[in-house]
Amino acid sequence: MTTSTAEVGKRPASAGRPERGAHAARGRKVPGWVPDLAWKLLRLVISIWAVLTLTFLMIQFIPGDPVRLALGPDAPASLVEERRHQLGLDQPLVAQYLDYWGRMLTGDFGDSLLSQQPVSLLVEARIANTATIVALSLLAISVVSILGGLLVGIATHRGRRPLLGTGFTLATGIAAALPDFLVAVGLVFLFAVTFTIFPVAGASSAASFVLPTLAITLGSAATMMRVVRSSTAVVLDQDYMLVARAKRLPSTRVYLRHGLPNLLTAALTLGGLQLGTVVTGTIVVENVFAIPGLGTALVQALTTRDYPVVQTIMVLLASAVLVLNLLIDVALGALDPRSKRQRG
């Protein structure tokens, strides 16, 4: 009896995976790319609405007087009252909400509670650095993980080069487990103390972006490289690959013809999966390398309770993630008809 039970269990669950079924069902409900795109856009709008509303409510949620908390107990009552008025906190809630929407949509983010400078000036001064880091990191993650994963996947296919395989698993495992802030600190240590090739603070030159990008890339690229490696193995085991190799086609041609077409799709998918990680990564990494970006501004504003700055940067970063996600989603749908079925 025991043996028969074991036999039952070993049978692979070929059908009936709940995920697959759900996706198929959803795909059927929304056929074609037009309603698909409309649905995605609607979701984006709703998401951004939620982000704006939540950041608006953030100040209202804070127990006590947020302005008093921000300015400290020593601030004169008249100043507190002035700032309350400046934030519109003396207005009725609905008026505040509508005003907030109007301002955010027109790009008037209000004035910083501390410096009294318009927040938009701060954003203008800093957004380029943050955008550079995000873009470089996404690029680096896609390129490194796809090339690395592909090469290692081919090299270690079917248990060949076991040493490389084990080393790869170990190295990517450790790299993936290390959080970005630790990697960043490690890089500061290495390049501040031992090698002094790259600057470890500030954003004075192009070289300043090397270490921040590296710090964000390492963990994500390691995770994604593993994914690429295992899917490479799956592709190599497909029948058409076996046929191609049985025909003794030169191996580089086989890999290029069947590997490359999927490169762009894979890059986009992987980049999309890492978007959130990369954006939060910049917040952390900018602080380690003292880069004047949105991340450093956000952390500073959080510690000083400079609400207008916090709201603005949160809305910007969140919207960036949501919009980029949508763009990637749409691009994938256009590139690969199959992915439409699998993404809802």
Binding site: A50, G276, L302, A318, L322
Partner: peptide, 26 residues
């Protein structure tokens, strides 16, 4: 639920944590 959760999962966790931290205090 799925639409909400999919957005919530794609949303950067650190930003969510920072948001909550701002509301209830650092």
């Amino acid at each position: 639920f799925q639409s909400v959760v999919n957005v919530a999962i794609a949303f950067p966790a650190l930003l969510t944590a920072m948001f909550v931290g701002t509301v209830i205090g650092i």
